[in-house]
Design a protein around this nucleic acid. Structure first.
Lengths: 252, 252
DNA sequence: ATGGTCGTTGCAGAGCATGCAACACGATCT
DNA sequence: AGATCGTGTTGCATGCTCTGCAACGACCAT
């Protein structure tokens, strides 16, 4: 809607692919070099792009800072986090929290079990939307029309033999998930990994987030993991209650 | 330099503080509502802001994806990561990797301590530049002129009694660090936390990143932590060698 | 019902972004 | 060395595009 801003923002995904110099940016934007220069300068002043030693441009530091701040200020995440930790202490497995946004499902929190992995690296990354247990829960809650059109536009990569094969199967799975109020992913993304997930609901009953427990086959079998379902559901319900319970009361 | 883009980008840090509605955004930008609306629409189309159920705006998913992509495309990080993990496995403490950019020093990778006591830090967050061991290393490598002007413009918050008090002390510390090739932070940021850090250098000998090991007093004393110095330096050197060794060879 | 708040739209005016051309600087080639 | 190319950079006139206004519609509360 705003041409100038539109052009400026188009630079970001372009730089995400890798560093580029002024000429390359101008070409790919289809504008004059001087125009690209001024756009890049503005982005630079805001710290969104960074100029490296060879004068080429890369994405800048403030981008990380913004993303971090944003993720930390999500109310659901804030409320849910202690519950995730508690659940992790009880069962020992990896715990995820995910939300749905703009036809993507992404992790917004994660508690890792054994290996102290890079904590934030996966957060913000879109999940395998056609197979992940949390994705099923979040999408199952969409109005039927949206669900259908979304299912039709998705790709169905066959990560494993048990991946969701096509839109029909996906919609059937969503219907089942919607019915039972919980979801699983049994080796649909990675052969040896299973997940159990439960929804977090807002006051109006809509699913605002989903949490899951994941564990590899070598640690617990799928059957054993399923015995955790009641615990997972209880935790998710606790988060739902707290989320619905106390209104933010911040901001005048 | 470009007013429209400037205004649009100013919305991002504003939303990072928390969700806001159209009126609030317009007020804080000092523009008319209709103007703010069009800017927000453009940001929305690019996925940088997201409109939640209550119609308020928040930062959007693409921001995370961009930050993610950007951080993953940093060659230093990619090369260093396995070394950080290895170091963590050897000593058990929190390991950080940081770079210098636009007068800020920020963590770009982190491996969590295996001890229950964890320190708070996050990838993408600017570090306490006047006291952090990694910051000292990165700034000590700047040309003298830059170092002086930077030191003069910094604030010197007194986090603890042992925080760097002023520019003079800071420059002296940088000179020492530059001389010895490693750095420490002994309770300068948080009373009970100590760090040891070593530099990662590129082919030309310039410091391109710095890594550190941090641990609270209750786990190991400062003296004990210092015994890790040789290990830390060896790890940093290994990263330096690998970083200088094989050129990426990607891109024509 | 009625006042209030909030988001949204169309429009005219002008402020601001645009592309051009020329410059500066370094690298490379003959 | 000198020339030539390829960069990034600047100043400026043109007119496109952004801006603020005012009016409308939707929603909530009193």
């Amino acid at each position: 809607m705003s041409q100038t801003v539109d052009r400026a923002l188009s630079i970001l995904p372009l730089l995400a692919e890798g560093p580029a110099d002024l000429g390359q940016v101008a070409d790919r934007l289809g504008v004059h070099k001087s125009t690209a220069l001024r756009l890049l300068r503005t982005l630079h002043e805001h710290g969104l792009v960074h100029r490296q030693a060879d004068q080429r441009y890369r994405l800048g530091a403030r981008l990380f800072a913004l993303a971090q701040e944003a993720v930390e200020n999500l109310d659901v995440r804030e409320i849910a986090h202690p519950h995730l930790v508690e659940l992790n202490e009880k069962c020992g497995h990896t715990v995820h929290l995910a939300v749905h946004e703009e036809n993507e499902v992404l992790y917004i929190d994660k508690v890792e079990s054994r290996y102290p992995v890079r904590m934030y690296s996966r957060i913000g990354k879109p999940v395998a939307i056609t197979v992940a247990a949390v994705a099923k829960l979040l999408l199952a809650d969409l109005p039927e029309a949206e669900r259908r059109t979304l299912a039709a536009t998705l790709d169905y990569p066959r990560y494993t033999a048990r991946s969701t094969p096509d839109a029909t199967a996906f919609l059937a799975e969503l219907a089942k998930v919607r019915e039972q109020g919980w979801a699983t992913d049994l080796g649909g993304h990675e052969e040896s990994i299973n997940c159990v997930a439960a929804p977090v609901r807002g006051t109006d009953g809509r699913v605002v987030a989903a949490m899951s427990v994941s564990a590899p086959n070598v640690v617990v079998s799928a059957e054993e993991l399923l015995t955790l379902l009641p615990l997972v559901r209880r935790t998710a319900d606790a988060i739902s209650r707290e989320y619905s319970g106390s209104p933010p009361t911040k901001e005048a």
